[in-house]
């Protein structure tokens, strides 16, 4: 191992690098071009989504394949509430709404374990999209909704704030009693129950917090496009991308998730074209298969292997 090149303490390096990155990101709107800002927006969005997704799926092991379901619900909720209340109030309101909905759904859905939960959550997108479409066609008689557009710099800054809050909360959860409870559930749910962890409440709470942050991020970014309909906000791409990033980063690893979100977002922005997005999608699918086959623990697994090879305790 080349000691001179690799820093001695990964955790310390991560935090120092994190602080610098956050500072640069916050002042970015003042110097960045529109194009660069657009790239940063995508990066921040996916960093946020992956971290929020990790709070449920990474920490408890319940594989959630329906990020787009909450993205969609939050999008519609924002379109409706933003008619009445200002942007900054609407964001937490939408977040709370997602929390309540997911907590209620979680009470039923999270009793289903293992692969069944993943499938049920996969179908959740289809369910929500159809119900929303039914409601819109029958009662509102509109096919889409228009949202007033805000400048990119505003949405970007707010989204960045939400993303940082998500990361901080995720770290706090991981280090808390609650977080240990979740990792017990991941390890062996029945045993966790016997040990005295309120398994049902812990799972629902993790689901709720996860959805809360997904909802906030969605509400923050929706005014960017200005128009939503069910195909835009319930896009399976959102679920898929988040899953790929989460798995490639390493399930339950916040830093791994953030890293892979940055890498993949750059990939989208640099190689993805609106005219022919399919090659990139195919590539991502193949990449996910390769990673799960050869590196089931993703980037985090690689980091851990490197650090443990140097006799340092993995963080």
């Amino acid at each position: 191992m080349r000691r001179a090149v690799i820093p001695t303490n990964t955790t310390k390096m991560t935090s120092i690098f994190g602080v610098i990155a956050v500072a640069v990101l916050f002042v970015a709107p003042s110097f960045a071009s529109r194009y660069l800002l657009q790239i940063l927006l995508t990066i921040v969005l996916y960093v946020q989504l992956v971290t929020a997704w990790n709070i449920l799926s990474g920490f408890t092991g319940y594989l959630f394949l329906g990020v787009a379901a909450f993205y969609g619900i939050a999008g519609y909720a924002y379109a409706i509430v933003s008619l009445e209340i200002p942007y900054f109030v609407a964001i937490p309101v939408v977040g709370m709404l997602c929390f309540v909905i997911s907590y209620a759904i979680g009470m039923v859905l999270l009793r289903i374990r293992g692969p069944y939960f993943a499938i049920a959550s996969y179908a959740l997108v289809l369910l929500f999209a159809n119900v929303v479409l039914y409601y819109e066609q029958t009662y509102s008689r509109v096919t889409g909704r228009v949202v007033s557009i805000l400048p990119v710099s505003t949405t970007y800054t707010v989204l960045l704030g939400v993303a940082i809050a998500t990361i901080v909360v995720a770290y706090l959860i991981k280090r808390s009693k609650f977080g240990y409870g979740l990792s017990y559930i991941k390890g062996n749910e029945d045993l966790a129950n016997v040990v005295g962890i309120n398994v049902a409440r812990y799972k629902c709470l993790a689901f709720g917090i996860s959805a809360f942050f997904i909802g906030m991020a969605t509400a923050a970014i929706i005014p960017r496009g200005g128009y939503i309909d069910t195909t835009v906000v319930f896009a399976p791409t959102i679920s898929f991308n988040t899953l790929v990033m989460g798995v490639v980063g390493g399930l339950g690893s916040i830093r791994g998730g953030v890293l892979s979100a940055v890498l993949f977002s750059l990939l989208f922005e640099l190689f993805g074209t609106r005219a022919n997005p399919y090659p990139l999608f195919v590539f991502m699918g193949v990449l996910l298969m390769v990673v799960i086959f050869y590196f089931p623990r993703g980037i985090e697994g690689v980091i851990a292997r490197v650090t443990s090879a140097r006799g340092e305790q993995a963080s």
Binding site: L63, L65, G114, P115, A118, F240, L243, V244, V247, F281, V282, M284, G285, V286, L288, M289, I292, F293, P296
Partner: peptide
């Protein structure tokens, strides 16, 4: 095993 095959086939569906 189920976790691995599920993610493999999810990716396969996408591909």
């Amino acid at each position: 095993r189920e976790f691995t095959t599920m993610i493999m086939t999810f990716a396969l569906a996408w591909v």
